[in-house]
C-alpha cells in the first residue's frame, strides 16, 4: 500500500462522509426537536434521488434546476408527513412510542412500493450529467467531480443549517426542544415549529439525495443502506447534535473507506458497525450528545 493510495482512499472517504453527515443531520434535527425517529428517512433520500433523476430526464438542465425543485418537494413532503401522520401519532392514547416507530416504518414501506410502482426495480443513475465522468486531479489524487461537488454542497447546507439556528426561527426551535409546554406561553405555535422542523430535516435529505444521484445509482431499496448508516452516524455523533452529525459523518466515511481498503469491499460496513457497538458500550449518548 503506497502513501498515495492511502491518501486517495482517505480523500474519497472524506467526500462520502460529508454526504453521510448531511443525511444524518436531517434525522438528528427531527429527533432532537421532538424525540421522534423517522424510520422512513432512507426512503425520503431515495425519493429525493428519484425526483432529481426525473427532473434530469425531463429537462436535462442539471443540478442547478434539480437542487431547488427537489429540496422544495422534500420540504413540502416533510411538512405534510408531520401534519398528516406524526401529529396524529403523537396524539394516540396508548402505545405512543411504538406507534411512532411503526407509522414511519409503514410510510417507508409505502414509499418503497410507490417507487417500485413508478420507476420499476431497475438501478438508475444520472450517467450523462455535466458532473459525470470527470475528475479533479489534485497533487496526484483523482477526485471525481460529482463527489467533490456533492461534498461542497453538503458543507454549504450544513452552514445554512447552522445559520438558521441563529435566526429567530432557530431560537424558537431550540426553545421548543427545551420545553414544548412552556413555549406556548410566549406565543410559539408548537405544531408549526414541529412541522417546519420536519420540513427542514427532509430538505437536508433532499440536498443530499440530489447530489448523491449524480454519482450513485438509485433503486427502490437504496434507502435502507443509507438509513442504516444515518442511524449509526447519529448515534455516534449524539442524537440532536448538528456538530456531532458532521464529525461522525466524516468519521464514518473514513472508517468505511479504510475498512474496504484493509479488509475487503464487501465487508466495508463492518468497521463502522464495530465503532457503533464500541460507542454503545462506552458512551451511549454519543460523542456530542446531551444527556
Amino acid at each position: 500500500m503506497t502513501p498515495v493510495l492511502l491518501l486517495q482512499v482517505m480523500a474519497l472517504g472524506l467526500l462520502t462522509g460529508l454526504v453521510y453527515a448531511l443525511v444524518a443531520a436531517g434525522l438528528s434535527l427531527i429527533f432532537g426537536l421532538m424525540d421522534v425517529v423517522n424510520f422512513a428517512h432512507g426512503q425520503f433520500l431515495m425519493l429525493a434521488m428519484y425526483a432529481a433523476f426525473a427532473v434530469h430526464a425531463a429537462s436535462g438542465v442539471g443540478v442547478a434546476l434539480e437542487l431547488p425543485l427537489v429540496v422544495l418537494l422534500l420540504f413540502v413532503l416533510g411538512v405534510a408527513t408531520y401534519r398528516g401522520l406524526i401529529a396524529r401519532a403523537l396524539g394516540v392514547a396508548t402505545n405512543r412510542g411504538m406507534v411512532q416507530i411503526f407509522v414511519t416504518f409503514g410510510l417507508g414501506i409505502f414509499l418503497t412500493g410507490a417507487a417500485q410502482f413508478v420507476f420499476g426495480g431497475d438501478f438508475r443513475s444520472i450517467g450523462d450529467g455535466m458532473l459525470a465522468n470527470r475528475s479533479l486531479i489534485l497533487h496526484g489524487l483523482h477526485l471525481p467531480l460529482a463527489q467533490v461537488a456533492a461534498a461542497v454542497v453538503c458543507l454549504l447546507a450544513f452552514a445554512a443549517l447552522a445559520l438558521i439556528s441563529r435566526t429567530e426561527f432557530g431560537r424558537a426551535l431550540a426553545a421548543t426542544r427545551e420545553d414544548r409546554e412552556a413555549v406556548a406561553l410566549i406565543g410559539i405555535d408548537r405544531n408549526r415549529i414541529f412541522a417546519l422542523g420536519w420540513g427542514l430535516g427532509c430538505a437536508a435529505v433532499g440536498v443530499a439525495g440530489v447530489m448523491l444521484v449524480q454519482f450513485y445509482y438509485v433503486s427502490p431499496n437504496v434507502g435502507a443502506d443509507f438509513a442504516l448508516i444515518a442511524y449509526v452516524t447519529v448515534a455516534l455523533g449524539g442524537f440532536g447534535s448538528l456538530l456531532g452529525a458532521l464529525v461522525a459523518g466524516i468519521l464514518i466515511g473514513e472508517v468505511e473507506a479504510l475498512t474496504a481498503l484493509l479488509l475487503e469491499p464487501s465487508l466495508k460496513q463492518v468497521g463502522m458497525f464495530a465503532i457503533y457497538l464500541a460507542v454503545l458500550m462506552l458512551r451511549p449518548r454519543g460523542l456530542f450528545g446531551r444527556l
Binding site: V103, G106, G113, A114, A115, V118
Partner: peptide, 14 residues
C-alpha cells in the same frame, strides 16, 4: 417489480 403490494402493506401498517 410492481410494488403495489408494498404500497397496500405500508398503508395498512400506518
Amino acid at each position: 417489480g410492481r410494488g403495489s403490494d408494498l404500497m397496500i402493506y405500508g398503508a395498512l401498517i400506518v
